[in-house]
Design a protein around this nucleic acid. Sequence first.
DNA 1: CTGTTAGCGCCTTCAT
DNA 2: ATGAAGGCGCTAACAG
Lengths: 340, 340
Amino acid sequence: MGERSRGVTISDVAAHAGVSPASVSRVLNGRQSVDPDIVRRVQASIATLGYAPSALARNLVLGRTRTIAMVVPDLENPLFQGILKGLSLAAAGDGYRVLVADTAERVEDEEATALEARGRCDALVLCAPRMPEERLRRLVDRVAPVVVVNRPLPELEVPIVGVDYVRGIRDLVDHLVALGHRRLAYVSGPEASASNAERVRGVDEALAMHPAVRIDRIPGGSRPEDGEAVADAVAAAHRAGVTAVLAFNDLVALGLLARLRELGVDVPRELSVAGFDDVPMARYATPRLTSMSVPRAEIGAQAWSRLRTLIDGGSVDHSVLYRPRLEARESTATAAQAVA
Amino acid sequence: MGERSRGVTISDVAAHAGVSPASVSRVLNGRQSVDPDIVRRVQASIATLGYAPSALARNLVLGRTRTIAMVVPDLENPLFQGILKGLSLAAAGDGYRVLVADTAERVEDEEATALEARGRCDALVLCAPRMPEERLRRLVDRVAPVVVVNRPLPELEVPIVGVDYVRGIRDLVDHLVALGHRRLAYVSGPEASASNAERVRGVDEALAMHPAVRIDRIPGGSRPEDGEAVADAVAAAHRAGVTAVLAFNDLVALGLLARLRELGVDVPRELSVAGFDDVPMARYATPRLTSMSVPRAEIGAQAWSRLRTLIDGGSVDHSVLYRPRLEARESTATAAQAVA
DNA sequence: CTGTTAGCGCCTTCAT
DNA sequence: ATGAAGGCGCTAACAG
């Protein structure tokens, strides 16, 4: 028989306890000192009436909701899932909840979605890897406080929590080169993706550092299907001399792995394959997938930490850029084996 | 330069347009008929002042937030991710957003979390696979409107959107038996999990229908690590004559697959392995994992559909129970091969 | 220490 | 068709 009667207000409690609403408010919020006797009576009344404060009313009068929103292009991407998890847990630790706003990859709607979501809460975490930079720059100060995740945005008063994809790719190439590979291929991600652009820069920098190395570019995508679809091209590249492949991310790498096996390409004996992001499944793949680990939950937690500072009126924290960590597993091996 | 000046209120607009706040409210909501000229002036003022209605104020006066919350034990589980995705998209279609409340597997906090989250929004989607039934029953009518996902709850005025795990397991066993398997094993999920209990019932029913079949029970878990950990026991069972294994879910199956390979057990030649849920990665595993497909996004969408009815004051819709669909892939094969 | 008085920003009768 | 007034439920001054 839950006391589901909507409408037990603070005044009801006040009346029942024989005090003023203000006093009830005080005991509710532990404000100032209140006569112990009143505290007791109020608490008793609250209990018997089954009173629960209206969050809506508090939101209005206080001007804050203790809610933040996270705008993501696709909730199905393990990277964003991990970030959301970390964000949600960290925020919960401070009594905040997070609202999800999945833009379903529709870049045109991202701006409107962000504005709408922002209207319902106190701050925003923005993941908009494909939004044109100009638009993002304008958006960012209409939705402050905000932290931008996973894309660079130079010279702006906005905290960024990101991943150093450039460095990550360079490190990954170094790993492959150390294994003896000289002919590599990069299966690229979505054209408009900021993090793909970063990876491409990483590839270019790597080339500059390894004059003897060659890295072909193969247009790919961001999902397992894309990895499967590009397998033929990868196999062809392999026949043409490529001994190692870097995929845009793990999902692509995993799809690629599955299809390569069916095509009879032996990974890693004939061809090494590496992913990026180190999604949970990477280490359970066959062969276990070499990847660049990205601290997903930590990114979420850091985003919250910065947001909280901003919400509390603090000034912009330093941005963070995580350097991915190499997780060398079975899918990459020495080129010698490949030659054998 | 964003008009970030907090505090353009409806009265400001009214003053600027030379009308009353009530009129502004009317044009804002398209209520009643308003003089076309006033409409124009108001819209102009709104534009030049950069006015945006306060969602907080509307929430209070209207008594609704157009927000719902989803309580989940673990956002990292692909099953819940898929449901969240479907829920979020469906709700967005009606102008609703969803708040996530991850209880981080802490069953003790689920009740408090649910109540707190409910206080901030209009309705709840509850995923609480391990909450004791008694507590759940009590909780459910304190948080109405609510729909319960993924667990049975007989004789209660609450819509349920769920999966027929009993039937799913039976169908899966049928598949295995049809392949010639007679000695099976079930790697069970978390003790307290309602859906594990259902699966166990499925196993029992299957046994009743196939007198010649034997199904051992091996304690497992719900994550890939659990699958890895149980691989030795599974290998031993295999040596003892078991030719097919059903895992609690795909994550366990995937972990199991990875470790079995290292133990030198050939799947599916020596041993068939099947998962449950058909997570996105299942079909990219090596071998591609046989699983029971569950319409994750659809579950989310149906949950929203029911919630919406309830929110609009409608009466409880019929509950739905999805029958999982067999996705027979490479990881299960005829027992003949196993014998060979 | 406690009660009274004002709003927070908006919507909605109720008159006009 | 429009404006004035009241209130959603709560908190933050201010007096007392």
